[in-house]
Design a binder for these strands. Structure first.
Lengths: 218, 218
DNA sequence: CTATATTTTTAGACAAGGGTAAAAATATTT
DNA sequence: AAATATTTTTACCCTTGTCTAAAAATATAG
């Protein structure tokens, strides 16, 4: 099977593939894994031999379908354990990552089948990220405007509609950028304004803002 | 801190110390850990440097108080996870050992505090073994005759009262020896006979037998 | 289209943990 | 007590995953 180190590489490459479409560079992996490019080259060559990724010298890597499935399964385990830690052991959602990083490598398919059932087969982890199903498939949804979201919905910022300087400056001040997770805490029907959560900050936004932000929702 | 391999050595030595009183031999550790004596020597010397055990060449090893505490904590985690697997995930008690062998190495004190609370601070694991408390102390109880045990009590065989050949042969046939776990499934007041469980076997024993077996109960 | 900068790979080393084979110490027989 | 058997240790090699330094490939600038 795959070692702890190998699983971590596959996971990192999986995430990098989704962030920047296309080949993943050696340096990008090294930075993500907090290791040296030379170590990455070694590991990537080993994983290519195992046919979980395709690798062309100096050209970067891509997961094979097998590799993608393995990576998705590690992520599935990570996120299920996060749900367990928050829902059952009452951890706060920002305390669970490190523990889940360890738990995700526990090897037992039956354990995960039962854990999933015990948790009620959740679709999302406590951070709002989708949990891949047992085949490694992730529910991917279409983007929509933040203003179309309902109370308690979560989304990931994937773009803006109108990109004026003032608007981008506003987003910068609010620490919103591509990939930022947003949760709608409240919505006022009268004027379409919202209270949203971004990281640990909660604040008010007008309808005009909400109509200019694209999010990918759960 | 201590690596996975180091924790496993400490755990094995802890158990061996309790089984055979006194120094633990290199060969005994090697056999228990399914490794070679030469590897044991290396590791034992390393652990002696770290002052978790005392080691005299050719004389065997003993855990230091620090080492014993670390080992007891690993065992605590192992047994708490076994309770989780059986009570919450509905595994059968004989399916959980391998998974718990992995889970016992997850590093997070807070996780164990919360897991323990979630499980209702159990005193025993699903096999009937006591769970060390957070300071590494194990409830040790006095031995008594099996005949003094009540229904549903569990005990570990620690000796016999009268050791005639016939009796020892009987015990051999029933696969009962020092360390064998016994659970009282039923007790007949009329004649003091019992139905007991030994491993996965269940059978009937007379009062005469029950009065000749010493057990250490929970 | 060279020259320079950056990225990536190779070569060689190291630490952890484990294995083999032989030497050294201890135990057991006779 | 000497001879033999067993246990334990030593010396050396292997694998995994990492690092540093230098070489090679690619990208960027002038």
């Amino acid at each position: 099977m795959f070692s702890l180190a190998e699983e971590n590489y596959l996971k990192a490459i999986y995430h990098l593939e989704h962030e920047n479409q296309g080949e993943v560079s050696t340096n990008a992996i090294a930075e993500r894994m907090d290791t040296k490019p030379s170590s990455v080259t070694d590991m990537v060559q080993k994983l290519a031999e195992k046919e979980v990724l395709s690798y062309k010298k100096y050209k970067g890597t891509l997961l094979t379908p097998t590799g993608r499935k393995i990576a998705a399964n590690v992520i599935r385990k990570h996120r299920l354990w996060e749900v367990f830690l928050v829902e059952k052991l009452n951890f706060h959602w920002d305390e669970v990552h490190e523990i889940a990083e360890q738990l995700e490598h526990i090897q037992s398919d039956e354990l995960i089948v039962r854990l999933d059932k015990f948790l009620g087969s959740p679709d999302f982890d406590p951070h709002g990220d989708p949990i891949p199903d047992k085949h490694g498939n992730v529910k991917r949804t279409e983007k929509k405007l933040l203003s179309e979201c309902e109370k308690n919905q979560r989304g990931v910022c994937v773009g803006v509609k109108e990109s004026s300087g003032e608007f981008l400056q506003y987003l910068d001040k609010r620490k919103i950028s591509i990939g930022t997770k947003i949760k709608v805490l409240g919505k006022e029907f009268f004027d379409g304004s919202m209270i949203i959560q971004v990281g640990s900050d909660q604040f008010f936004i007008s309808q005009k803002i909400a109509e200019n932000l694209y999010v990918q929702t759960n």
